[in-house]
Simulated scan of single mutants.
Amino acid sequence: MNSSPTTYIYPFAAHESERELCLMEQRALFGHDAEGTAYLESPLRLAPNRSPYVQLRLDVLFAASSLAELGEIAATLELDGRTFKVRYLKSGQRLTYEGERGVERQIGARIRGIAEMRNPDITLGLLAREKDWVLGICHHAEPVWLAHKAKPHNYSTGLTTVVARALVNIALPRPEGKRGIDPCCGMGNVLIEALSMGVDIVGRDINPLAIRGARSNLRHFGFQENRVQIGDLNELEGAYDAAIVDLPYNLCSVLSVSERQRMLESVRRIAPRAVIVSTEPLEQEIADAGLSITDHCTVSKGNFVRLVWEVQREM
């Protein structure tokens, strides 16, 4: 290509029950959300499969006020013998099926190269924004988290792979050189998503059965099972950059207010920032533990509602 992108566009999709979590993840990763549109623009270049809600990354090459002008610019592309196809991205202004195919043909006809519809070397994404048209290179996401659903062991009320992956991104949006911990790791859902993204993380749980299940799950996906050890959050030592804490909530793990308070105080002790998940409102308890809430959302699954808080240690 004869132009280098300086802007990236991330089309995304989320079920209504996870819309708030999707936007919260965007605020953590990009510093702002895309409320009101189905795509987010940013100068940050992230792997397209980083977020479970992102469908692809569009590396912007050109923008023009009209489709005709964009076609003239597209005629200057140098593909160096590579095959291509043009794909209209539905995340922008909506067109009819015939309209989408028409604008694809209009731009594709201006590009000097070999069109290949089935298996092109390059897919060029065409996006209609509110006031202009954009053409760029598509890098599609590989939804690795879908494969992680087939774990040997799981809790029926455990975090889904999508939610777990989003929580990791909220807790550690810039994970390079940082270390995370899931001190109530259960069967390791958060750990697996974090490790699949190259995040340095360890897991602890007070329940030996959970530890055995988590180790089996890690081993199943090719991760080191020694990243999980038995341990009580309230007795953990060491310091971590971020913690992801899904507080126990099933009938066998009913926590008293004093127990929750002690756990939240332990979170503050081991990490300056954390993502906390609970089925009960904890705003006052979070404040009493010396943590301040920087963002929050709710995630629902039928009648089962989780509350999610991004917190940081008060100085």
Results as ranks from 00 to 15, higher is better:
residue 178 K to H: 14
residue 163 V to F: 00
residue 155 Y to D: 03
residue 110 R to V: 01
residue 185 C to G: 07
residue 154 N to S: 15
residue 115 A to K: 13
residue 121 D to A: 14
residue 161 T to V: 03
residue 149 K to R: 15
residue 167 L to S: 01
residue 142 E to T: 12
residue 149 K to P: 03
residue 113 G to A: 07
residue 116 E to K: 13
residue 161 T to H: 02
residue 109 A to M: 07
residue 145 W to K: 00
residue 145 W to F: 11
residue 178 K to E: 07
residue 130 E to Y: 12
residue 127 L to S: 08
residue 180 G to C: 08
residue 171 A to T: 03
residue 150 A to F: 14
residue 182 D to C: 10
residue 154 N to M: 14
residue 142 E to F: 11
residue 121 D to R: 05
residue 124 L to S: 09
residue 132 D to T: 08
residue 117 M to S: 12
residue 108 G to V: 02
residue 180 G to Y: 06
residue 184 C to R: 07
residue 103 V to M: 06
residue 150 A to V: 12
residue 114 I to G: 09
residue 164 A to M: 01
residue 183 P to K: 14
residue 105 R to I: 13
residue 150 A to S: 14
residue 160 T to M: 05
residue 123 T to V: 15
residue 149 K to N: 15
residue 159 L to T: 01
residue 150 A to T: 11
residue 117 M to C: 05
residue 130 E to N: 10
residue 126 L to M: 03
residue 130 E to V: 14
residue 126 L to R: 09
residue 154 N to D: 14
residue 180 G to F: 06
residue 135 L to G: 05
residue 146 L to Y: 12
residue 131 K to T: 15
residue 123 T to C: 06
residue 177 G to E: 11
residue 156 S to K: 12
residue 110 R to L: 11
residue 137 I to L: 09
residue 140 H to M: 02
residue 143 P to Q: 07
residue 108 G to H: 04
residue 105 R to T: 13
residue 118 R to Y: 13
residue 125 G to W: 04
residue 179 R to D: 08
residue 122 I to W: 13
residue 187 M to H: 10
residue 135 L to K: 06
residue 165 R to W: 00
residue 143 P to L: 09
residue 141 A to T: 05
residue 157 T to M: 11
residue 155 Y to H: 15
residue 142 E to D: 13
residue 165 R to L: 05
residue 153 H to L: 12
residue 143 P to H: 08
residue 136 G to P: 00
residue 145 W to Y: 13
residue 140 H to S: 10
residue 138 C to N: 04
residue 188 G to E: 02
residue 135 L to R: 07
residue 139 H to I: 00
residue 166 A to L: 02
residue 136 G to S: 07
residue 138 C to W: 03
residue 124 L to V: 05
residue 181 I to H: 08
residue 182 D to F: 09
residue 174 R to E: 14
residue 103 V to C: 08
residue 155 Y to R: 08
residue 117 M to V: 13
residue 106 Q to V: 08
residue 153 H to G: 06
residue 132 D to L: 10
residue 188 G to I: 03
residue 140 H to R: 09
residue 152 P to I: 06
residue 180 G to L: 04
residue 146 L to P: 02
residue 140 H to L: 07
residue 169 N to F: 09
residue 104 E to P: 01
residue 154 N to F: 13
residue 137 I to W: 04
residue 173 P to M: 07
residue 108 G to D: 03
residue 137 I to Y: 06
residue 119 N to C: 14
residue 110 R to M: 14
residue 184 C to F: 15
residue 131 K to A: 15
residue 134 V to P: 01
residue 120 P to K: 11
residue 117 M to L: 15
residue 184 C to H: 05
residue 178 K to S: 07
residue 126 L to H: 08
residue 138 C to L: 05
residue 160 T to H: 05
residue 129 R to V: 04
residue 136 G to F: 00
residue 169 N to S: 04
residue 108 G to L: 01
residue 154 N to W: 10
residue 179 R to W: 12
residue 109 A to K: 12
residue 121 D to C: 11
residue 140 H to Q: 04
residue 148 H to P: 00
residue 117 M to G: 11
residue 129 R to Y: 10
residue 186 G to R: 00
residue 133 W to T: 08
residue 132 D to G: 09
residue 160 T to C: 02
residue 137 I to T: 04
residue 172 L to M: 10
residue 155 Y to I: 03
residue 115 A to L: 07
residue 133 W to H: 12
residue 139 H to V: 00
residue 112 R to V: 15
residue 168 V to Y: 00
residue 159 L to V: 01
residue 132 D to A: 11
residue 126 L to A: 06
residue 149 K to I: 14
residue 188 G to F: 03
